[in-house]
Every structure is written in C-alpha cells, then in structure tokens.
Design a protein around this nucleic acid. Structure first.
Lengths: 135, 135
DNA sequence: TTAATTCCGACTAATTGACTAAGGTATCAC
DNA sequence: GTGATACCTTAGTCAATTAGTCGGAATTAA
C-alpha cells in the first residue's frame, strides 16, 4: 500500500514550481539541486506531468518548467494520477486488464470495500491543492 | 498504490471462514479449491493471520483454521495490517527505516498530506467488519 | 499405523521500482 | 553561426518484492 517514489518526488517538485509561480521557467537542475533528487529521474517524471497538462516547458537557454495554471487549481490527486496512473487498490478494479481471475464481477462482496477505498483515497488527494502545500 | 495479492486473497479467505463460523475448523484445501487460490500461497498467508490472533489453527486430521472471534468483531483493516504490515503510503512515514532522505521531518508540508491519506485509508478499512462481507 | 492436515524454511522465476548512462534534439543568448 | 543550456528518449542495471514452488517435519483423528 505504497505510492511510488516518483509520486513523492513529483509532488515535491511541483511544490517548488508553485513557489516560483509566475517567476519564469525553472530548470530541472535547480530542482534537482535543492530537493536532492537525481536529475535523470526528474527528467523521467516531468514528461508525464507535461502530457497531463499540469506543466509547460520552455526549451533552450534559461528554459525550464512552469505550472500551466495557478497553484490553487492543481490538486495533489492530479499529480498522483499523472505520474502513477489511476488509483487501483486491487487488481480486480483495473478495467483494461484481462484478469478473469475475479470470476464473479457483479456480486463480489469484497469488491465494494475496494471500490470505497479507491474513492476515499481519491477524495483525500483531491481535497488538497498545491498552494496549500507551500504556505 | 496497490494492496498486495496476499491481502486480496487473505480477505477472501477470511470471508469464507466467516461463513463457516462456529462450524468447526476449515482446511486450507477447501478454501483453495473454492476460491481458486494456490494452496501453497494460502499457507504463506495464514501464519500471518495466526500470529496476529485473528485465526486459530487445529492441527492434524480434520484440522484447519477458524476465526478466533466473531465476524462482527473483525475489521478488514485488521486483516490488511496483519498480512501487509502497517499502512505507509510513502517511505518517509515508515519509522523503522533509517531514511534520512527526508531531511526536514518536522516542517515538511507534503508530509501532512501523506499522514492524512494514511489515516483515511485506515478509517475506511476499519469501518467494514467481516460479517458485512458475507451477507 | 496411516492419512490428513498444519507448520516451517528455503528456493525461484518474473515483475516492478528506483535509479544511471548516454546520446540526441531543440532553443536561445551572444 | 556557435556553444551553452535544457529538454527528450531509450536502454541498462541492480535490488527488492511478488507470487508462487518444493520438500519435509510435526501433529492428530480414525
């Protein structure tokens, strides 16, 4: 029952971008330096954030990344899902998989517990906005 | 953000024990057969449940496992923690580890989010009792 | 005794996680 | 244009975890 390190780092990095909001693009090297996260690892995380539209990148000299919208509008849940994909506490909740292991589907009693768990996790993560992390 | 298969199977197996509550010990072979879970894997899960006091074992012929208390008193959270250990959504929340990676500790802002997440997960899991899964 | 069953510990194959390395491509200041 | 800066992509590695296997020892009802 763990989030990945990518998520942990991703949230820290996004918090740092929130601090520098509207102060121009921030290079990953700066984030790497200050948050003590491997530059290469950050370069692996940020494409995910960009594809989800949470950040924008500016290339070239003095380039870097910046939030594409105000910190007040970005939920921690957005970051988690961007980096790690949808929250699925157990396998039988991931739709795409051809897991017929759960042979019941409809009337599975334990399934309801997992569904409720998933929803509550999303609730908690969606209840916190980026600006709350940096003040 | 996943629970392990051990937890998923453990809850299903415990639900089956709840159905057979007060009907004598149930051998793992029966559970394996009906729930389509590898017998050897079940034998790996049940020692954890026994050590946590959730089930009792009867050795020898016609032995098996049985709940050590009524289904109404056993929480899904008890099962999850017995099989998987304490819930720690991110590394910096696990006490025993010598992870000084999180150099802030006290005033870490993101930490509060993870703590809240952990608490809510426990809340949801502790809100469901075994008898609710089998009726 | 014998068969059924729990218990115990080591072993393994496959997957995932957490990075590291290297090279390529785009952009901008000068 | 040139070189520095920064993004982008792919691949590889190393350790831990997962989901089991396997074999055997202890226990007990019949």
């Amino acid at each position: 029952m763990k989030l990945s390190a990518k998520v942990e780092y991703g949230v820290r990095a996004m918090a740092m971008l929130a601090i520098h909001y509207q102060a121009g693009p921030l290079p990953l090297s700066k984030i790497s330096e200050q948050e003590k996260i491997s530059l290469n690892f950050l370069e692996q995380i940020f494409p995910d954030l960009r594809r989800s539209g949470l950040v924008e990148s500016v290339r070239g000299a003095h380039g870097g990344y910046m939030l594409s919208s105000a910190p007040e509008t970005i939920r921690v849940g957005d970051i988690v899902r961007a980096v790690e994909g949808p929250i699925t506490p157990v396998n039988c909740l991931s739709e795409n998989k051809s897991e017929v292991r759960c042979h019941r589907e409809g009337d599975c009693l334990t399934r309801k517990v997992w569904e409720r768990l998933r929803d509550r996790i999303n609730d908690v993560l969606d209840d916190v906005f980026l600006n709350e992390l940096v003040e």
